[in-house]
Amino acid sequence: MQGMIRRNDHADLERALDTQAGVVLLGPRQVGKTTLAQDIADARDAVYLDMERPGDRHVLAEADLYLDEQVGRLVVIDEVQLMPGLFSALRGQIDRRRRAGHRTGQFLLLGSASDALLRQSAESLAGRVSYHELTPFVLDEVGQGAQQTLWLRGGFPDGFLAPSDRDSLRWREDFIRTYLERDIPSFGLRIPAETLRRFWTMLAHEQGGVLNAARIAAGLGVSGQSVARYLDLLVDLMLVRRLPPWHANAGKRLVKSPKVFIRDAGLTHALLGLGTVEALLGHPVVGGSWEGFCIENLIAAAPRGTQASFYRSAAGAEIDLILRLPDQQLWAIEIKRTTRPKVTRGFHIAANDLGVAARLLVYAGDREVPGEGGVRALPLADAMARLRAAVTS
């Protein structure tokens, strides 16, 4: 079933391989990187190696000897961060192949996102590869009719496609446990699993809130530096989004702390034990969960290179999401889980301050309607379609 859902990134990766020697595909574990890579490899002359398999690691013990025999083929290397010594060999391979006329489609490298992976590859492969992020499923991949299921279960393929809500919740709970007990330690990070679970759960309770590191530190009984380290880790693993505040208006008193979201709504709900729509709708996190769900989908639909932030002033002017598109246009987006297409006066004040090009309200209605002050109220799927159109315009 997973293979039947065509990923939006599929065509982008194909184009990148047709123009670049190598492509690095990053994303959390179980997000579907391997399935996507195998779909691409099936249409090419390719070889697939998984660095979690001892036999494949042994094949690359003498990397140059093996890779010299694969010239002209696409080499897919999964979990590449487990063999950091490969990056210097890959740099040499790419450079030699370029000189020999093999300039594109040589390597597809998959990695569970981590700061270590990015740092190693950036140093060794700068200018030689392009980087792409694979997120969990987003709405325009699964269809608007599946919006409620996607919001409740999240977009990790095995959780979204589970036979029932109960099976999905069980998968997500196991995913969280495995990440804490096996995957994070595999990166060489020594953080007690129970402490990190408590931290992750605290973030779920405050989904979409402005970060108060001191309060979290007091609740965990750790230092502020430890809280910063835990947050950096979950951001690096692409499990948490740290949405920065807008900071360009020097004359305004603006909130300076980031807002923090668990990026996959299904993981938020699993951390809180919310396994049904009814349980979610009756929980205080419902508003923050909906906001985070919409933000992740909107950012995924935005043009490559878009910068995301939020705006909040001491006077109460606020915008949930500001997108600075690559052409420097600003889109101001308000997100409300309501059927009433109306924004606050503070939204208009902030939008006027910033001189935005577009004012959108993403709401729970099912049709696009004009609002006051140039606002367009529209469903999430329609807002995503507008952003997709901006990619190609």
Results as ranks from 00 to 15, higher is better:
Leu169Arg: 10
Arg170Asn: 06
Arg170Thr: 03
Trp171Arg: 11
Arg172Gln: 14
Glu173Tyr: 10
Glu173Phe: 14
Asp174Ser: 08
Asp174Gln: 06
Ile176Asn: 00
Ile176Phe: 05
Ile176Trp: 10
Arg177Ser: 01
Tyr179His: 15
Tyr179Leu: 15
Leu180Gly: 04
Glu181Ile: 03
Glu181Gln: 04
Glu181Phe: 04
Asp183Ser: 11
Pro185Val: 00
Ser186Thr: 08
Ser186Cys: 08
Phe187Met: 11
Leu189Thr: 14
Arg190Glu: 15
Arg190Gly: 08
Arg190Lys: 10
Ile191Gly: 11
Ile191Asn: 12
Pro192Glu: 00
Pro192Leu: 06
Glu194Leu: 09
Leu196Asn: 03
Leu196Gln: 03
Leu196Lys: 11
Phe199Ala: 04
Phe199Cys: 03
Trp200Phe: 07
Met202Val: 08
Met202Asn: 00
Leu203His: 01
Ala204His: 06
Ala204Trp: 02
Ala204Ser: 10
His205Ala: 11
His205Thr: 05
Gln207Asp: 05
Gly208Cys: 03
Gly208Phe: 00
Gly209Trp: 09
Gly209Arg: 00
Val210His: 11
Val210Thr: 13
Leu211His: 01
Leu211Trp: 05
Asn212Phe: 10
Ala213Trp: 06
Ala213Cys: 09
Ala214Arg: 09
Ala214Ile: 02
Ala214Glu: 09
Arg215His: 09
Ile216Leu: 13
Ala217Leu: 05
Gly219Met: 06
Leu220Asn: 02
Leu220Glu: 00
Gly221Asn: 06
Gly221Asp: 00
Val222His: 07
Val222Ser: 15
Val222Trp: 07
Ser223His: 10
Gly224Trp: 14
Ala228Cys: 09
Tyr230Cys: 03
Leu231Asp: 02
Leu231Asn: 09
Leu231Gly: 06
Leu233Ile: 12
Leu233Pro: 10
Val235Gly: 11
Val235Tyr: 14
Met238Val: 12
Leu239Asn: 05
Val240Trp: 13
Arg242Phe: 05
Leu243Lys: 07
Leu243Ile: 10
Pro244Val: 01
Pro244Leu: 05
Pro244His: 12
Pro244Gln: 12
Pro245Asp: 10
Pro245Asn: 07
Pro245Glu: 15
His247Tyr: 13
Ala248Pro: 03
Ala248Ile: 02
Ala250Gly: 01
Ala250Ile: 12
Ala250Asn: 05
Gly251Pro: 09
Gly251Asp: 04
Gly251Tyr: 06
Lys252Ala: 02
Arg253Pro: 05
Arg253Gly: 09
Arg253Glu: 11
Leu254Tyr: 09
Lys256Ala: 15
Lys256Met: 15
Ser257Tyr: 08
Val260Gly: 06
Phe261Lys: 09
Phe261Asp: 15
Phe261Leu: 04
Phe261Glu: 09
Ile262Phe: 00
Ile262Pro: 02
Ile262Cys: 13
Arg263Trp: 00
Asp264Trp: 13
Ala265Gly: 13
Leu267Gly: 07
Thr268Gln: 15
His269Pro: 12
Ala270Met: 00
Leu271Val: 07
Leu271Ile: 03
Leu272Tyr: 06
Gly273Asn: 13
Gly273Leu: 15
Leu274Gly: 07
Leu274Asn: 00
Leu274Asp: 01
Gly275Gln: 03
Thr276Asp: 15
Thr276Leu: 10
Thr276Ser: 14
Glu278Ile: 01
Ala279His: 02
Ala279Cys: 03
Leu280Phe: 07
Leu280Met: 04
Gly282Asn: 02
Gly282Pro: 04
His283Asn: 13
Val285Arg: 11
Val285Lys: 12
Val285Thr: 12
